[in-house]
Design a protein around this nucleic acid. Structure first.
Length: 293
DNA sequence: GTCCAGTCGG
DNA sequence: CCGACCGGAC
């Protein structure tokens, strides 16, 4: 067994020996529930997703249920999870699943990738966790664990999607069930032990298989991760404020009330135009509303 | 201020 | 490849 394969087996064993009872890991959890959870988990921490996921699935237990309501209802139910385009994409995905896949979430990675809002991570996460298919799953946690344990550097740096998928593939056990445990285990390891700020190496199952540790924890010298712009005062904040107003109202919101939501006319107009262009908002009479179709 | 089970368009 | 995209928690 090569070094990488040893890593996969170790993490699978560590994960199988006990992990947090996340709802989407429960045996028999529906593929639709896994898909919804993965949309919600795109850049939103686990703890914030758990309560919203249950509400969503109680209301729309299958893709066809969501496909049957206007997209605006999905945006409204998304509430303040953030990045509301995900709600729009999830609705569009439910329509595509209903029309193209007979209402069944596809298991094929390429079919999943063709769905709106489904990228390299989500497609493989659904294939691996909902259907038990042996495919590498790479999210930010996996990227960090691979950077440290395999490449011996402290941070993953800019994304190198294809290369990281290939590396993860090499450490997956041949057996699909063990591969699933390895995928889930590396993610869990990165989230709970091999964390960005303060890794807890004393609890790490890879303590003797870590290139970063072997190298003496060298400081990261690669390209800096892109810096995030401040949220306060950004167009994102303005968009969020407008959408929050529309979500709170069953009727169209008059343009005059939108105008009162943000003092900078140019920024407010630009943000509203962006929401319209994105299909998150539509004109309704002399006001605006969530999308009715 | 930083980070978070990312995706998309330019 | 790079920036935009929400919002809450630490």
């Amino acid at each position: 067994m090569g070094a990488d394969a040893a890593i996969g087996e170790r993490v699978a064993a560590w994960f199988a020996s006990g992990h947090r009872p996340l709802p989407w890991r429960a045996p028999g959890y529906p593929a639709w529930g896994v898909l919804v959870s993965e949309f919600m988990l795109q850049q939103t921490p686990v703890a914030r997703v758990i309560p919203r996921l249950a509400e969503w699935l109680a209301r729309w237990p299958a893709p066809a249920d969501l496909a049957a309501v206007p997209a605006g209802e999905a945006v409204r139910a998304w509430d303040r999870l953030g990045y509301p385009r995900r709600a729009l994409n999830l609705h569009a995905a439910s329509v595509a699943i209903t029309e193209r896949h007979g209402g069944i979430v596809p298991s094929d990675v390429d079919a999943l990738l063709a769905l709106p809002g489904v990228g390299p991570y989500t497609a493989r996460a659904v294939a691996a966790f909902a259907y038990g298919i042996r495919v590498p799953v790479v999210d930010v946690n996996v990227r960090r664990v691979l950077a440290r344990a395999v490449r011996g550097v402290g941070e993953p740096g800019p994304a190198r999607t294809n290369e990281e998928l290939a590396v993860m593939e090499t450490l997956l056990p041949a057996d699909p069930e063990r591969a699933r445990l390895a995928n889930a285990g590396v993610m869990e390891l990165g989230q709970t032990v091999c964390t960005a700020r303060t890794p807890d190496c004393a609890r790490c199952p890879l303590v003797d298989h870590c290139a970063w540790r072997d190298a003496g924890y060298p400081a990261y010298t690669g390209p800096a991760a892109p810096r995030q712009k401040p949220y306060a005062g950004s167009d994102r904040e303005v968009r969020g404020r407008i959408l929050r107003e529309l979500r709170a109202s069953e009727l169209p919101v008059p343009a005059a009330r939108i105008a009162g939501l943000w003092p900078d006319d140019a920024q407010r107009d630009r943000s509203l135009a962006g929401l319209l262009a994105d299909g998150l908002v539509e004109a309704a009479g002399d006001g605006y509303a969530l999308p009715s179709s």
